[in-house]
């Protein structure tokens, strides 16, 4: 019962804020709405027994990535007169319609039994220690590749953003 109330309220917040993200004209409002959406999604993660991931989501997405976005938006500076309403072109409407169609097909494909509540989760599933152990045993190679990727991203960002190197 609690789970249902939590899920529906968080899902409603997430969907509404996501809709606002793609409809607001001002990028700052979009970004702030996206932060709200990420918070709501973090709540959903927490219901799913992934409190650690939920907190990481807030830390990384809301705390780091979105702050960077807002920083860049502020840095670029949005002149209110510059915020043009986009014109809906035919291709865009077609693309959006295709996306909605895809969503419906996916939903229909996913909507099949069994309709059961989640099984009881053990401590090993819930604890962040399991994630840590997996990260340095089974997923060691992806983990290393990921660190190299992050390094490349840092260097790339510096190269792109700096005027003179």
């Amino acid at each position: 019962m609690f789970e249902a109330i939590l899920f529906y309220s968080l899902a409603a917040v997430a969907v509404i804020s996501a809709l606002l993200v793609v409809t607001r004209v001002n990028p700052i409002s979009s970004a702030l709405m996206l932060v709200v959406c990420f918070m709501a999604t973090a709540g959903v993660f927490a219901i799913l027994g992934a409190a650690f991931i939920a907190i990481l989501q807030i830390l990384l997405y809301a705390g780091a990535i979105m702050v960077l976005f807002i920083f860049v938006i502020m840095l670029i500076g949005t002149d209110p007169a510059d915020l043009k309403r986009r014109q809906m072109t035919f291709a865009k409407i077609l693309g959006a319609a295709a996306a909605v169609y895809l969503a419906i097909v996916l939903g229909l494909a996913a909507w099949r039994p069994p309709f059961i509540a989640a099984p009881m989760a053990g401590d090993a599933f819930l604890s962040p220690a399991t994630i840590g152990k997996q990260l340095v045993t089974t997923y060691l190679l992806p983990f290393e590749i990921l660190s190299v990727l992050l390094l490349i991203a840092i260097v790339g960002a510096v190269v792109l953003a700096k005027k003179k190197i």
């Binding site: 990481l56 990384l60 960077l68 670029i76 990727l149 992050l150 991203a153 960002a157 792109l160 953003a161």
Partner: peptide, 18 residues
């Protein structure tokens, strides 16, 4: 992993935008 890749993507993407 998705979180980490998203962070990398955001860093490079914002660099490109700037």
């Amino acid at each position: 992993f998705v979180l980490a890749v998203a962070a990398a993507e955001a860093a490079v993407g914002l660099g490109i935008v700037i």
